[in-house]
Simulated assay, not measured.
Amino acid sequence: MINKINILNLIKEHLSTFYLKDKTKKDNKRRDGKALFLFFIVPLFVSIIIVFLFGNMNDSLSNSLLTCLSILSPLMFGFFPFIYDLIDNDNINPKSKFLIQEFKANVLFTMILSFSALACILIWTLVNNNLDFLLYLKKDIVNNLSTGILLFLSGVIYYLLLCLGFHILMIIQRFNFLINQYNKFKINNP
């Protein structure tokens, strides 16, 4: 039952796209540390800086982000007809098929990031909107706790959004490469 909602294999598949060819190793692969640093560590540092500089999100930013992510998430599904059209094409070289599989993994992971950011924004909104009720119960303890929770959620949201931005740029780059490969194939094989 839990296998139907288990996304760990999608995350592993995405992380497997961060390999470089290495002729010195037996399996001919090594992790691309620079890419992992760019896609996961840089957003962490930037989100911490944003939280320290700007603090908690506000309602208007939350609403804007919810709207943007609600539009962006379904747009990611638009890549799948293109991906499956390329996968089903028998005349594409094996390297391109490998890149198509990586592209699919990147798109799926970006969708996971998008849905995670949406969920965190919704939780932030729930905590922020129910803050008055919580403050009525125990002012000092709840105020410090809720402020900490909101700051933490703001940091997580900023991190997810920055990761999402970097991954969207990667998807755009790979999409452009695949389109160019597809066009070259169509020109050479009318």
Score class of each variant (00 low, 15 high):
L61V: 07
L53W: 08
M76V: 09
N91G: 12
N63M: 11
N89Y: 03
S47K: 04
S73I: 00
G55N: 00
V42G: 03
M76R: 11
S60M: 11
P74A: 05
N56G: 05
I92G: 01
S70P: 00
D59Y: 12
V51L: 07
C68H: 09
I71Q: 04
T67A: 06
L53G: 08
S73T: 06
F45G: 13
F40H: 03
L44S: 10
P74Q: 07
M76Q: 12
I49H: 03
K97I: 01
S62R: 10
I83E: 02
N58G: 08
K95N: 15
S73N: 13
S47M: 00
F54L: 14
N56F: 02
N63R: 10
F82S: 00
P74E: 10
V46C: 06
V42R: 06
I71E: 12
F80S: 09
G55A: 01
S60A: 13
L66T: 09
I49S: 05
P94E: 15
S60C: 08
F98L: 14
L69G: 00
F80D: 09
L66K: 08
I41K: 09
P94A: 06
I92F: 15
L44F: 14
N63P: 04
L72Q: 03
L61M: 14
I49E: 12
N63E: 15
D59P: 04
S73D: 07
F77S: 15
I87L: 11
L86Q: 05
D85W: 10
L53Y: 07
L86F: 02
D59T: 12
T67N: 09
P74W: 08
F54H: 06
N93E: 15
L86M: 08
N58W: 01
S47T: 06
L66A: 04
D59F: 14
S47F: 03
N58Q: 10
P94S: 13
P94N: 13
S70L: 03
F79W: 04
F77A: 14
L66D: 04
Y84S: 08
F79T: 04
S64K: 10
P74L: 10
N56I: 02
